[in-house]
Amino acid sequence: MSAGVAPAPVDAPDAARRIEETARRLVEAGDCAPRPARDPVNEPMINNWTEALGDANPAYPGQAPPAMVQVWTMGGLHGRRAADDPLGAMSAVLDEAGFTSVVATDCAQTYARVLRPGERLAIRSRLTGVAGPKRTALGEGWFVTTVSTWTVDDEPVAEMMFRILKFRPPPPPEPPREVPRPQVNRDTAYFWEGTAVGELRIQRCGGCGALRHPPGPMCPRCGATRPGYVVASGRGEVYSFVVHHHPPLPGRRAPFVVALVELEEGVRVLGELRGVEPGAVRVGLPVEVGLDRIDDELVLPAWRPR
């Protein structure tokens, strides 16, 4: 797996039970200890805020914008959650279960009174609920709701319900495989149209009925130029093979095996032989065709032991 993919989830019911148990314990534990703001409510930070948001309300900075309340107690550039912070504890358990991404979904703030420069805030938080697992547009996840209270001395001055979605990021799409692509022409189109629909097609002379591969415009036996095809059973034996070590090829990891397979129908077809160690391949090995879907336009035939 590539980097950035969420760790494989532990057994899902087990993970859900652990998430719910942690949630119950944290809800019962109630408020964490109050954490003081780094700075008192102050005019420079209010001015930075109103400047950035373009808010020209003349009530500021003599009073703080109410919606700025959360700013005073943000953790900052190097912030670390306190050990008893309920969102931190809950997030750790959800991370472990593979719900590693986070997005804020709801925020409801109420303000008991106006705050003015010089006041020193503290915040305390409690977990009020964890709901999931839910299917969302972003992926499967759990909604985590906390309620925080800001105080000045011991007076509650504002409260906030905050809800986040902790979700499992969907796996990134497989990168397209770069492989050498076949030249498709009027002689060979039937073959690649066949692999696209899961058929291994063998050219058959429209004159004498002889089978031949690789395809060509004229029958080497009777000279007719009216080729058709039959669908092969896909079963055969290794007639000959090479183990490719070098040079490197796009879309392949060396060493790999290229086998010439004699089909039950009597013609021989080349393809990669997969699903067997190179050292274990031998002439006469019974194989069958499998299909290696490269992308929407190309399906390569490949052999596998049967």
Partner: peptide
């Protein structure tokens, strides 16, 4: 508040993203 003017007192802001 741009509409309500500087004398208005905001009691609550509740949003869903």
């Amino acid at each position: 508040t741009d509409w309500a003017g500087p004398g208005a007192v905001v009691r609550a802001v509740s949003i869903r993203l």
